[in-house]
Amino acid sequence: MTDAAFFTEVLIPALLKGGVVSLQLIALAAPFGLLAGIAIAIGRTYGGRVVSGLCHGYIIFFKGCPLLLLLFILYFGLPSLGITLPAFVAAVIGFILCNGAYNSEYIRGALLSVKEGQMIAAQALGMSRWQAIRHIILPQALRRAIPGVSNEFIYLIKYSSLAYLITVTELTGAAKIVAAKYFAYFEAFALVGIFYLILVSIATVAVGVLEKRLAIPGFSGK
């Protein structure tokens, strides 16, 4: 097989296939990770003592637990408790739990940065506390949380490669398999590196566009 044929017929098709799996992992984990982050941040900031405590506990636990260990527990550990998850599902759950914990801290900071008067004015108009959070506080906080949350999103793109270690053949895994078979480690991993670089670049640009579209006078510090 020629070098060119190796690239076009073996490596690139394998990486594209793996890339699709990576994108599926990311596309499922990111929105739920964001929702988890929002829920935990609200619970911790506005919840009563019990809810707030539980949310704090969640953050301590999942920030403290290495992601790889979490994936191992979900995939290799849970079956001994009678819970068997497909590898892909275990990976997505692990990413959501981890992504949610970090997102919640960015969002909590943003919630706390919204001035107290916003809640007071909303309640004075007859909004319940929840309506005020939903319609007044959260739209402001999420705008301020974009830089932090997008940072976390970019981490997610990269740590999605850990799914390979619980047998999900995503981008990195696909490269590893081809590399081992053809003894082409440099080519395979260099190309994977370019793949991730492209993904991260697209994400960065997309976040920039999003931030611009949601920009409001008085919010950008300008």
Partner: peptide, 25 residues
């Protein structure tokens, strides 16, 4: 209620400040 520091909703235009409670409440 009208406050000393206005407390307008910073992320909403003037007209949306006025209508938000009409819509949501």
């Amino acid at each position: 209620m009208v406050f000393q520091n206005f407390y307008l909703f910073d992320h909403l235009t003037a007209v949306r400040n006025v209508e938000v409670a009409l819509l949501k409440v």
